[in-house]
Each structure stands twice: as structure tokens, then as C-alpha cells.
Write a protein that binds this DNA or RNA. Structure first.
Length: 447
DNA sequence: CTCGCGCGTTACCGGACTTC
DNA sequence: GAAGTCCGGTAACGCGCGAG
């Protein structure tokens, strides 16, 4: 048994003490930072709420609507900060400021059973400003705009369009109808009762009121144009249901089908330029939540369900799940083992994968895989194909005008791309996804 | 590691309500 | 009365987590 020299022992003890002290110091520092961070976060939340509330108030206030009116006419008298307040104070005082209702305190507390009579007397609730919970989505850091195409649940937003604020029909209390807005939705085919296809929904300038156009992938010649979102979807739902010997009931929400009720879409649209000038529109607030379960979809098998494969990738430090997939970044990692390979469902025509063939094997049987895809991958992959088939051009004319062809007419860019060798799936996907994503965003402009 | 349960989320549907 | 809009209910789905 060897004895430790007392000197050495003292040294070690001293060092240990130092380390412990440092550790304690760091812990206290960390704690301090955490507390500060929490305080800042609370402040930020409070400030953002305050700001939204104030702006909502201002939007509804006559004084401000007058200002907006002037601004629209170009007679606003320069910057807001330099405007003549004294002139407007009188107007402001006489203006009726509608309170922003965050909760209907006068409303009776909801009972679990609503009687027929109650239902009959129940009136439609006024549009109020609410805090909606949405999942995170990709934002281009340089522009602050969302990265398109943007996956929003079962919808994929291809183009956001431009807000028309000076024509009242282009927005309502609930929705904004930007000219050039284009989304892709998967729904039952009108031709093949066993298939779901993707429908391109577009909003175009129709003069006094917007034109709503829905174009089915499998029969573009049967596209429907109407003056309302519901009107555009109605014939399609009728046809699709008739094909399946189902009686179509009038229950259809056009805005739902256009994706306008989706929280992410709502947020993105109200952040567009000139959204604040939409006087009737009731501003909503949003809070980001971590993705949990996916929305269900009746009648579509789980393997085919778009939400399983088009889950929005959130390049966030907080959100790191094993099912990370980048929709707009072309990388999908489905939760099934058969999807272990990273796959390029399709790529935009000008998309050059940063991972070169040395690491990505574009196998010869890609075409076979492509054939399989329709059956095994379901609509999501096809939707991507449509999206990347040439709609990333940045104008708001919709897919047909970009290259003069419907999405389905574009040849698939690539089938499956397999990474060589085995890697831990999550790490592998994360890194690949990030890289691909960053390259993708630099390779083609989103609107 | 696998399985099962609980829970949150969301697409779709049906029907009530509103507008024309 | 028809067409369009909105809302609540429900089923389906997947994540988180604990138990084994």
C-alpha cells in the first residue's frame, strides 16, 4: 500500500476545492442567466401582446382609419411621427373605440349538453382576437419571410400572394384573400375513386371580388373558378362524392379547403405587407407550440396520410424529434423503418443537392421507385412533385402560368436518393436535412 | 427496446346561421 | 330558398412517457 505525499494530497484538495468553487460559480451564473432569460421572455410576451392589442385598437379607431385612409390616398402628410396630432385629437375623442374582445365574458358558460332550443337561439359569435396555437415553421432569416413552399398541416402553401387592401371583397373579418395566393391540398379524386390527388387552389384578381380557382391534378381541364372559396370547391366535392356513391351534403367550408383557416396560414397572411390596412380584418395572435400529434383524416390510411410525410421540419433547437422531415427542403424521414432512407421526392428544376453523388447514390432504380411512389407514398410525395415542378418562380400567377403546364405534367426530378452506409437515423437526418435545407433556400428564391 | 396508454392536434363532416 | 359561411363534434393520428 503506497502512501500519498502530504504535499500532493494538499494540492489535489486545493484543486478540487477550486473546481467545486468554479462549478458553484458557474451554476449560480447559469441560474442568473436563466432568470434573466425568463424575465426577458415574459417582458417580450407582454410587450408583443400589448403591441397587438394597441394596434388592434388603433385599427378599429376612427382616428387611425382616417389616417390609413390618408395614407392610402397618399395624403398622409409624411411619416406618422410627424403628423398633426392636434388636428386629429378631436376626431379621436369623438371616435368610438371598439374594445377588442378577448373572451366573451357575457356569454353563458358552455354547457355540455346544448338543447335544441338553445341551439336555435344561439347566434353566431362575433369575430374576436384570439391567441391561436401553431406549430413552428421555417423562416428565412435574411428576409424574415416564411420559406416557401410552406407546409401547413395537410396544405402546402406555394405562394402567399399580395394583399389587396383597397377592395373590401379581398378580405373579411376572418380571412384575407391575397391575389396570387396558391395552395395545394390533397383530396379525393374526381376520376379514380381509389385515389386521392392534389388540388391547386388559387386566388386571383377578379376585379371587385377575388376569383377562386381549384385545379385538380388529374384533370386540369376540370378546374373550377368561382367567386367564393366554397363555390370553387363545391362541384369538386359533389363529383368526388358522387363517384363514391356518397350523397353530398352542403357541409363544406371553402376557406377550410383553401387552407385559410389554418393557423400558420393565418399568421403568415396577416404578416404580409399591407395586412394592417385591411380594416375589417380582426387581427389574431399566435403562440408557437411544439408539434405533438398529427391531425387525423378520415378515410385515408395512415400510410397515405399527408401529415405523416409532409410534417413540417422545424429547424429549431427546441424541436428535435426523431420524425424530423423537411418538407420544403425535400428531405423526408417518415417514422416507418422502410423510410429509413432519406429520399428526394422530387426537386425543383434548379435545385442542386449539396450532397453530391459521392454521398448520395441516385440509383438506377429510381424510376422504379418513382412508379412505386404513387402507390406507396401517397399524395404527399405527389404534392411535392407538383410544388417543385416549377412553382417556385416567385410570381403569383399560379402553377399553370409559370411554365405553361400543370404540376402533374412535370417530369419527376429524381426518385429516391439513398445515403450510403448506415448512420444513426436521427443524427443523420438532422445533419442532412439542415444542409439540404440551407442549400435549398439559397438555390431558389421563395416569393 | 418495445408496448400500451393518455393526451394534444387537426382534417373532415354535419348542421346551424347569414346573406342575397 | 339557395348559396355561402362558420362552428362544434368526432375520428384519426402521432408524440411523450411510464411500465415491463
Amino acid at each position: 500500500m503506497s502512501t500519498i505525499p502530504i504535499e500532493k494530497y494538499k494540492n489535489v484538495k486545493h484543486k478540487l476545492r477550486e473546481v467545486l468553487e468554479e462549478n458553484e460559480f458557474l451554476i449560480s451564473k447559469l441560474w442568473k442567466f436563466r432568470t434573466q432569460l425568463m424575465a426577458v421572455e415574459r417582458e417580450r410576451e407582454y410587450a408583443s401582446r400589448n403591441m397587438s392589442w394597441t394596434i388592434s385598437q388603433a385599427d378599429q379607431c376612427f382616428f387611425c382609419s382616417n389616417l390609413l385612409h390618408r395614407l392610402k390616398k397618399g395624403t398622409g402628410g409624411g411619416a406618422i411621427g410627424s403628423m398633426d396630432i392636434s388636428d386629429s385629437e378631436e376626431e379621436a375623442s369623438s371616435a368610438t373605440i371598439a374594445p377588442v374582445i378577448t373572451s366573451n365574458t357575457n356569454a353563458p358558460t358552455p354547457s355540455t349538453t346544448v338543447t335544441k332550443k338553445e341551439k336555435e337561439t344561439r347566434k353566431r359569435k362575433p369575430v374576436t382576437s384570439k391567441t391561436l396555437r401553431i406549430q413552428k415553421y421555417e423562416i428565412d432569416e435574411s428576409t424574415g419571410k416564411p420559406v416557401l413552399p410552406l407546409s401547413a398541416g395537410a396544405m402546402t402553401i406555394v405562394s402567399l400572394g399580395d394583399i389587396v387592401y383597397d377592395r373590401p371583397a379581398y378580405h373579411s373579418e376572418r380571412y384575407i384573400y391575397p391575389v396570387g395566393f396558391t395552395s395545394v391540398k390533397v383530396y379525393l379524386s374526381m376520376l379514380d375513386k381509389d385515389r386521392s390527388v392534389h388540388y391547386t387552389c388559387e386566388i386571383k384578381d377578379g376585379g371587385d371580388s377575388p376569383k377562386f380557382i381549384v385545379t385538380p391534378e388529374d384533370c386540369p381541364e376540370r378546374s373550377v373558378t368561382a367567386l367564393s372559396a366554397t363555390g370553387a370547391w363545391m362541384p369538386i366535392l359533389k363529383a368526388a362524392n358522387e363517384l363514391r356513391n356518397k350523397t353530398f351534403t352542403s357541409g363544406l367550408s371553402g376557406p377550410d379547403f383553401f387552407g385559410l383557416t389554418n393557423g400558420i396560414v393565418t399568421k403568415v397572411l396577416q404578416e404580409l405587407p399591407n395586412a394592417r390596412l385591411c380594416k375589417s380584418y380582426v387581427w389574431q395572435e399566435f403562440e408557437f407550440v411544439q408539434a405533438r400529434g398529427g391531425g387525423g383524416k378520415r378515410g385515408i390510411k395512415s400510410e397515405d396520410h399527408p401529415s405523416k410525410k409532409t410534417k413540417l421540419a422545424v429547424c429549431s433547437l427546441e424541436t428535435q424529434s426523431s420524425t424530423t422531415s423537411i418538407d420544403s427542403g425535400l428531405v423526408h424521414a417518415a417514422s416507418t423503418d422502410s423510410m429509413n432512407n432519406v429520399r428526394f421526392d422530387s426537386a425543383p428544376q434548379n435545385f442542386v443537392p449539396s450532397v453530391q453523388p459521392s454521398s448520395v447514390d441516385f440509383e438506377d432504380d429510381d424510376l422504379d421507385a418513382e412508379d412505386e411512389r404513387d402507390e406507396t407514398d401517397g399524395p404527399a410525395a405527389m404534392a411535392n412533385e407538383a410544388i417543385y415542378g416549377g412553382q417556385q418562380t416567385g410570381n403569383h400567377e399560379g402553377p399553370e402560368s409559370h411554365h405553361g403546364a400543370h404540376p402533374s405534367q412535370f417530369p419527376p426530378q429524381s426518385g429516391y436518393a439513398h445515403f450510403g452506409g448506415k448512420q444513426p437515423r436521427s443524427a443523420h437526418l438532422e445533419s442532412s436535412a439542415h444542409q439540404l435545407h440551407s442549400d435549398q433556400s439559397s438555390n431558389y428564391d421563395s416569393t
